[in-house]
Amino acid sequence: MKIILNNNNKELVNKVMEYGGKRVYECFQCGMCASGCPVASDTEHKIKRTMHQVTLGLEEQIMDKKAIWLCTTCFMCLERCPQNAEPTEVVFALRRVSAENGIIPEAQIEVANNIYHLGHAVTVEKGIKLRNKVNAPLLKTAGSDKKYIDEIQKLIDSTHSYSLLRIEKDWKPKRDDVIGCD
């Protein structure tokens, strides 16, 4: 599809810079970020293209594909970028822009609720059972004490992440038996 560039829309790039991707203009499209990206070959996440789309203000193209959520945030691109354009930071910034627009994949909402209610991104119920079975002491984690969870909730409540991430008060973890440490 032919892309028409006929305005000087700086809204996206300004937001990305404000939200942490402040070096996005440094990118000169060498492709080092994309060539080392562990998910690029199997997903639609093409970081070099995303960087370019930001500078051109092609917001719809970026948001439509939701590929920015497929980044594993391994920071490989950020470490290697010869211009220090910090592509991972640009991805984070784009996710923030996307969340503001109400576009967040279901999986991310689940993770957010996990953190809010359990203190962990993933459930550790199965691990606790295993440790009990061999009489191993329980590990201290962010979710091992109610007071830690209260603190996490206080933090999230005081930011607008609470509404953006669609936190549900009566939320139940879904995949208790699937995710865990075997």
């Binding site: 032919k2 892309i3 028409i4 560039l5 006929n6 293209r49 370019h52 789309q53 092609l58």
Partner: peptide, 12 residues
């Protein structure tokens, strides 16, 4: 052509 986008472009 925009090599990175892999798309035809036109600038007005």
């Amino acid at each position: 052509d925009d090599d990175t986008l892999g798309e035809q472009i036109s600038v007005i």
